[in-house]
Design a binder for these strands. Structure first.
Lengths: 231, 231
DNA sequence: AAAATAAGTTAGTTGAACCTAACTTATCAT
DNA sequence: ATGATAAGTTAGGTTCAACTAACTTATTTT
């Protein structure tokens, strides 16, 4: 048998630490610092546990943390987060492209493999499927160098009636939701036209592939699109 | 994000536990019970740590253990060990067949991935490369059902002068050794003829691919072959 | 058979990553 | 501005899987 972890210049981060950094990265995308409770919810652990880890991550220079006011990634923390995110998304893409997984089954598998896969494996996987730019849910894959170009997207829910848009990305949090979206035809690349927008956060009615579909406000907030035309 | 571990009927075994079972399985192949020190050496941990874990595994019914006299897998332990070994070997085979890894680089990667890959992933990998019967080093891959047919093999070192044999399997413990063996042409499937056998555990001289090679006794003990003819 | 050596175990620690319960700080509503 | 609620933290505890040091049992040598 051989040593459990390969030696590295940068000290290896543990699986849990990688998970925290990913969560913080994700929460920070909305602009504000990642709050303790939000991190806890995302990782399904107790807020008290987050307090402890956040202190540690700050001490290690991966995040900055002002007590009672959330966490923000430092440059080093962001780099580490993007590396893990790259792994996750390349694995997701590889599982669908090379091994026939459906898009609603890849998340959990990737969640475990991302902590065990070497950079070399990730690069080989990416090359084998033609260096895709996004994962199966439309999320962009960070480059090998750790840069990421986020497209300017808006939630489908925010479009006015009559607008046409291309689906760019959907949330991969729930397998069930992904199956439902696939059934509706709401997948990255699909074109949707907003027909009707019920008031008071009601459902919106859209045309997808010549079919009329009603989508709840909550769900429509998770579908990210790029607008094609206002009318 | 989603839960860290999938739920299962059989309680999940931790990575370390899987490593212990694999090590014990391997050591037991030689007939005798797996000794504490041997396990410790294989896993590169202190013997004292093994004592503790062995007690736990026995309590869990995965091994039997008589104090001071080594450990043996129970049926349940053997099943678990073979599952992990199947994962390891399928991953090794997949990495070489599908992703272009050389046979000396697959072990470490598999060592980490085997604890994170789901049964479904392993089955998909195996199918993708045509359900191979062995890993790149010639070690047999346990079936999905947990059975394993070990070929009747002998160490190259045990062959008499003049004998011809087919290389079946080599030890994958050291990447360096594997590179050396590849260079010699000593790979599973190759035919070797013993030309000379130096006394006092000296090197043996063999013919491989029309080339004459001297191989140290120690190394020749790790090369497993099936005899083709005595003369 | 006694002494030397090797193998194995026990006791006590450590560090990571989680937990609950109790407390403190911040924010919001009146 | 004061009290209620929400958010965050501290304190203390658990489990896992490793460690070292000291001790016990088994095996081998003389």
């Amino acid at each position: 048998m051989s040593p459990a972890r390969t030696l590295k210049v940068v000290p290896e981060l543990s699986g849990p630490v990688e998970d925290y950094l990913k969560a913080i990265y994700d929460l920070e995308r909305s602009g504000e610092a990642a709050e303790t409770n939000a991190i806890a919810k995302r990782l399904r652990i107790a807020p008290a546990s987050v307090s402890g880890m956040v202190r540690r991550l700050a001490r290690q220079g991966l995040i900055t943390h002002e007590r009672y006011h959330g966490a923000r990634l430092t440059a080093a923390g962001r780099r580490a987060a993007l590396k893990t995110i790259r792994r996750h998304r390349v694995i997701e893409a590889y599982l669908t492209e090379a091994l026939g997984y459906s898009w609603d089954r890849v998340h959990d598998e990737a969640e475990r493999l991302e902590h065990a896969a070497s950079d070399e494996l990730i690069d080989r996987m990416a090359k084998a499927i033609g260096e895709p730019e996004t994962d199966p849910h439309g999320a962009p894959i960070p480059s090998r160098e750790g840069t990421l170009k986020e497209k300017a997207v808006v939630p489908l829910a925010s479009l006015p009636e009559g607008a046409t848009a291309r689906v760019e990305r959907v949330s991969d949090e729930s397998a069930e939701r992904l199956r439902y979206l696939a059934q509706l035809g709401v997948v990255p690349g699909a074109t949707v036209k907003v027909l009707e927008h019920a008031p008071f956060d009601g459902p919106i009615t859209v045309k997808v592939d010549a079919a009329k579909r009603a989508i709840g406000a909550e769900l429509a907030g998770q579908i990210l699109v790029v607008g094609l035309s206002r009318k």
